[in-house]
Amino acid sequence: ELREAFRLYDKEGNGYISTDVMREILAELDETLSSEDLDAMIDEIDADGSGTVDFEEFMGVMT
């Protein structure tokens, strides 16, 4: 189920989504998050600083 959700956002099928897209997902899930909260969450999610979120990083957030 998580893989299907990931595929919805990984429109190009390249195995990752951008941190911008991940930020939008988080904002949709919790509309009360401030910009600073979102920045901090993205920094934590994208631990390797690649600017992308792969499936493993995505799973870590969603579980």
Rank of each mutant, 00 (worst) to 15 (best):
Y16K: 06
G49K: 12
M41V: 06
R23G: 01
S34Y: 03
S34L: 06
V61E: 02
D39N: 09
D20I: 11
V53K: 01
L8A: 15
L2M: 10
D43T: 11
I42G: 01
M22N: 00
G51Y: 03
L29D: 02
L26M: 06
G13C: 06
G15R: 01
E44N: 12
A5K: 15
Y9G: 04
L38I: 12
D37I: 10
V61N: 04
E1N: 14
E56K: 09
L8M: 14
T19Q: 04
M22S: 00
Y9V: 05
E1F: 14
S18D: 05
D30L: 12
L29Y: 11
M62N: 03
L26Q: 00
G49P: 02
V53C: 04
D30G: 05
R7N: 15
G49E: 07
I42Q: 01
F55K: 01
I25R: 02
T63H: 11
I25G: 00
T32P: 02
Y9I: 09
F55H: 02
I25F: 07
S34N: 09
K11G: 06
L38A: 02
E56V: 09
E1K: 14
E4N: 06
F55L: 10
T32Y: 08
D10K: 00
L38N: 00
A27E: 05
Y16M: 04
M62L: 07
E12P: 02
I45Q: 01
A5G: 03
G60I: 14
D48I: 05
M59V: 15
A47Q: 11
E12I: 04
G51V: 02
G51L: 04
R23A: 02
F55A: 03
T63D: 07
E24I: 14
V21W: 05
V21E: 08
E56P: 06
T63I: 13
D46F: 03
V61H: 12
I17L: 08
T32N: 10
E12G: 05
K11S: 11
E36D: 11
D37L: 08
D48T: 08
M62W: 09
S35K: 14
S34F: 04
N14I: 09
G15Q: 02
E4T: 05
S50K: 10
V53Q: 00
L29A: 08
D37R: 10
I42T: 02
F6G: 06
V21Q: 15
V21I: 13
S35N: 11
I45A: 08
I17Y: 00
E31V: 12
D10Q: 00
E44D: 10
A47C: 10
T63E: 10
E28R: 15
V61K: 06
D30V: 08
Y9S: 04
V53E: 00
R3S: 09
D10Y: 04
G15L: 03
S34P: 02
L26F: 05
M59Q: 10
Y9R: 05
M62P: 02
S35T: 10
R3T: 09
G60V: 14
T52F: 07
A5D: 12
D54F: 07
Y9M: 09
D48M: 06
E31M: 11
R3E: 15
G15V: 02
I25D: 00
F58A: 02
E1P: 10
D46A: 04
E28N: 14
E28M: 14
E4P: 09
L26R: 00
N14A: 07
D20F: 07
L8V: 14
R3Q: 10
S34H: 04
M62F: 12
A5Y: 15
D46E: 03
L33T: 03
S18Y: 07
Y9F: 08
E56C: 09
G60H: 15
F6Q: 08
T52P: 01
T52Y: 07
E36S: 11
A47L: 10
E36I: 08
E57S: 13
G49Q: 11
I42R: 00
M41T: 03
A27H: 12
M59G: 03
L2C: 15
E36L: 09
D20N: 11
M59R: 11
G15N: 04
S50H: 05
K11M: 10
G49S: 10
E1G: 13
L29C: 14
L29T: 06
S35M: 11
E31H: 14
A40Y: 10
S35D: 12
D20E: 13
I45Y: 05
T32H: 11
D39W: 06
D46Y: 03
E31G: 13
S18C: 05
D54K: 07
T19C: 05
D20A: 13
M22R: 00
N14S: 07
I42D: 00
F6I: 08
V53S: 01
A5C: 15
D10L: 04
A40E: 09
E56L: 10
E56H: 11
A47K: 13
L33R: 06
S35G: 11
V21G: 04
A47W: 12
E24D: 11
E31C: 09
M62R: 03
M41L: 13
D43V: 12
M59H: 07
D39L: 07
E1A: 13
E1I: 12
D20R: 11
D43C: 13
L38M: 07
R7E: 15
A47D: 05
D10G: 01
R7K: 14
I45S: 02
I42F: 04
E31W: 12
G13D: 08
S18H: 08
L33A: 05
E56N: 11
G13L: 05
L8P: 09
T19L: 15
D30P: 02
D10E: 02
